[in-house]
């Protein structure tokens, strides 16, 4: 199974990961990333990936041998968001990547992985950036909108709505406020956009992934 991964990092090209069709818990499997070969084991119950890089001359290898060093990559949290009817999933992962030789103990600081994942379809363009996110600080290359739907990132209650149907607002304009866990969360315009419709009402309860507004990109005049 080929999966295309776009890491949310400046200047990175999408990577094609070739995985087995099924993952057996804790069992070794062979995987390639853009042709680089690895032996891996994924323990779902323990949330840990063991990884050994294969010599380029034997990327077809399918055994974990006594002579290989397996690097343990414990995962603290893994959240995968995939909305119904959408091919692309957003992955948020915190894990402890192996130390570079010469560095201090690897376990001191976690690494965050933010990625968009989709089934690889030959000839299709890159899976582009992460899912839409009004609050994200990470500036994507493409500031436009991929999806016309602004979804709630949190579960909570709509406290107020400032967005008006048919208006054009600048990036960072307050669209609505959602109260969750006793905090007011201000949802801002992700770019200069036109509000095409307002889906929710004041006082409504929303879950993570629910549609809040529909937007369309509105390039500066």
């Amino acid at each position: 199974m080929k999966i295309q991964i776009q890491l949310d990092q400046k200047g990175t090209e999408p990577l094609v990961v070739e995985m087995p069709d099924h993952l057996a818990d804790g069992q070794p499997f062979h995987v390639t990333v853009d042709g680089r070969g690895y032996m891996a084991r994924w323990s779902r119950v323990n949330s840990v990936l063991s990884l050994s890089a294969l010599d380029p001359s034997k990327i077809e290898h399918t055994m974990i041998e006594h002579s290989m060093v397996e690097h343990s990559i414990p995962v603290r949290t893994m959240r995968v968001t995939r909305f119904a009817g959408e091919a692309e999933a957003t992955c948020d992962i915190e894990c402890f990547l192996p130390a570079v030789s010469g560095e201090k103990s690897s376990s001191s600081t976690s690494s965050s992985i933010k990625a968009a994942a989709a089934k690889f379809i030959p000839g299709m363009g890159a899976a582009s950036g992460s899912a839409e996110n009004g609050g994200s600080k990470n500036k994507r290359k493409d500031k436009g909108l991929r999806s016309p739907v602004l979804r709630s990132q949190i579960t909570g209650k709509v406290l107020s709505i400032s967005a008006t149907e048919g208006t054009v607002v600048e990036e960072g304009t307050l669209l609505l406020v959602i109260e969750a866990m006793k905090m007011e969360n201000r949802i801002l315009a992700p770019a200069r956009v036109k509000i095409t419709s307002v889906t929710v009402k004041v006082g409504a309860s929303v879950s993570s992934g629910d549609e809040l507004l529909r937007l369309e990109a509105s390039p500066p005049a």
Binding site: M1, M19, T109, S110
Partner: peptide, 23 residues
């Protein structure tokens, strides 16, 4: 700085692929 480093980007991609398969 602590988002997946280049060194770990293959590992990061494998983890994301695992996450995708799990959903």
């Amino acid at each position: 700085r602590n988002s997946a480093s280049n060194l770990g980007s293959d590992a990061a991609a494998i983890l994301a692929a695992i996450g995708f398969m799990m959903t």
